[in-house]
Design a binder for these strands. Structure first.
Lengths: 346, 346
DNA sequence: GCCTGCAAAGACAGCGCTGTCAATTTGCAG
DNA sequence: CTGCAAATTGACAGCGCTGTCTTTGCAGGC
């Protein structure tokens, strides 16, 4: 019924349980013929280690936690995929943990989460990874973690991380629009409390500055990472006396809102107005026209972070790593059309 | 460091560890003053049960597995939310398990998954829940599970389930289109191997029959639950000599593809062609125009299934339950426009 | 032949909890 | 008061594995 245990295998192979344990965990100090004998017994009995027993007995449970606070389903799934891939590969388990990154008790909640299941460590994604005070506390509890953050360069603050250069990608998108000939470019900001959002705004501003285009406050609109903000923000922009000829949404959902707003006004994208997003979510591929955006491989990023974490847990020293989102040009951006020829329908 | 254990609490409260265990698990047979004393000690020491120890010791780990084989991110997240909600509420843990529902070893993979972590049971979502042979095997391993399936009525096959009437919802959508005046209605089918897909096709056919509209094979196109099928399928339909005036996509992603196809051809939705989806995914709200669709609360459905499973694990007898998706009419459907007035733009 | 040193294998004691069953206390009729 | 069933509580043995320490086996140096 319940599958075979170490002892069963040990008896069959004529060795002690500890030796079977050694073989199962790939330890070196087992003579080759013994190892073969044990492996055969394991196979014959179809033995599978009991993860609970291993976790209870050992120093930790060979399981990591993936922590996120994000409303974006595609993002979460991509992250889970990345984490699961690395975990399967390294024979670790995975526990998922949605949470509220702004809860004052964040660090304590996570500590309990870790202790209750004896987790080996945590992968912290944005924006949880940006709550420095909580990270300090987590570190003081001796809980290993690796963060994924938005930064142009290695923060070197002692907390290991994978850092993603959002500024650079936003710069690339803005440059793309500028090179098409756009000058009035609207910016729909998202996630006031997300560092990534500030970085993207920075990239936008830097590009305008480098191209000698003056910033216009009325073209930058604050809001959240949601469709509705994109819709209303774009409406507001398009209702200006001098509306922008291009709109850059801080993520694909905002851009989707902007796209809907433009189309609902009877504007043709990209001929009447260009729209760009950020993320390369499936939405950006499935809308019409498909969105110009920045490709962010959340799955690969999280997979790297997970491998780093496991390496750290094993006591290896790890280097921080960086990722650069890349520009993906699709049908939603084109050169601006002379104002006179702009038309409305509907 | 590591949090307090049962023994610590027991000492502090001046009782045996077993009594603390009883209080922690909410068992009846503890006198009230003893219970209070123990609860106080638990609070003072900030005691949290160690889930691994509990799982190893007890008959099962108070943790369930959520099994899915689905490419749709929104769906998965909704299901996870529902399962997590119920699990948190019932003090159960949750393990997620993406899998390949068509693997011949499905039942054995799941058995190993259950044994390795001593899982209490499984929630099986479509299409895993439709692999009857595997379910038989799972049952023969004495693994408790609850399925979510697509069916018009209680299957009464001995395997507990939550059943969702896809046929009825598809009937409602088709009826909605017929009542708007559409006669040539295209159907883009998805997921050949999903029972839900067959049910939706059935709803479509039944509605046409009831309205005396003859079925036309050339208006029904097979494919998968993906955007691309929607796009190509819709193109094919729209290129017919007598194209449909409405297209029903078997899920929102297919409908999104159809929407993009129509728009890329220069057609105006819904004036030139109506489009309906199925699922009420965020996409259906975020496209322009937003999609008429069928609302399926995957979160609530999975939450119910999870509660049923836990009740079953506790030895209670449970009744199967049913859910009906409901019609959500949005901007993508409207009465057909006379053919002569149909227009294209470029 | 004897001792040293190292690799290989085993013994044993838990990890923190629950199931089982025995011991103790309590409540209450007689 | 006494007796007895019912209600509480506790003792104890694991659950299946790993960490630590010990023992065993064997090659090499004198």
């Amino acid at each position: 019924m319940g599958s075979a245990t170490l002892d069963d295998v040990a008896k069959r192979a004529g060795v002690s349980a500890k030796t079977v344990s050694r073989v199962a965990n790939g330890e070196r100090s087992v003579r080759d013929d013994t190892r073969q004998r044990v492996l055969r017994a394991i196979e014959q009995l179809d033995y599978r280690p009991n993860l609970l027993a291993r976790g209870l007995s050992g120093a930790h449970a060979y399981t990591i936690g993936l922590v996120y606070d994000n409303p974006n389903a595609y993002y979460i799934i991509a992250m889970q995929q990345g984490a699961l891939g690395a975990c399967d590969d390294m024979h670790f388990g995975l526990q998922i943990r949605p949470c509220n990154s702004r809860a004052p008790s964040l660090a304590e909640d996570l500590r309990d989460f870790v202790h209750r299941s004896r987790l080996s460590g945590l992968v912290l994604t944005t924006p949880v990874s940006e709550r420095m005070a909580s990270l300090q506390r987590l570190a003081s509890y001796h809980i290993p973690f690796v963060r994924i953050i938005s930064a142009a360069r290695d923060p070197r603050d002692g907390f290991p991380c994978v850092y993603v250069d959002d500024r650079d990608a936003a710069y690339a998108i803005t440059t793309h629009l500028l090179q098409l000939g756009h000058v009035r470019i609207g910016f729909l900001r998202g996630g006031k409390h997300h560092h990534a959002s500030a970085e993207r705004l920075k990239g936008y501003k830097d590009a305008l500055r480098d191209y000698g285009v003056p910033l216009r406050e009325d073209l930058m609109i604050e809001g959240d990472y949601v469709f509705d903000h994109g819709f209303r923000g774009a409406r507001r922009l398009l209702d200006l006396a001098e509306p922008p000829t291009a709109i850059f949404g801080c993520n694909d959902e905002i851009a989707a809102g902007a796209l809907a707003a433009a189309q609902s006004t009877g504007l043709h994208v990209p001929y009447d107005v260009s729209i760009a997003g950020f993320e390369d979510s499936p939405f950006s591929r499935h809308s019409w026209p498909p969105l110009t955006t920045a490709r962010q491989r959340a799955d690969i990023i999280v997979e790297r972070a997970t491998r780093m974490l496991i390496a750290r847990i094993r006591g290896e020293t790890v280097e921080n790593e960086s990722f650069n989102p890349e520009l993906v040009v699709r049908g939603s951006t084109a050169p601006p059309r002379p104002k006179s020829r702009r038309r409305k329908r509907g």
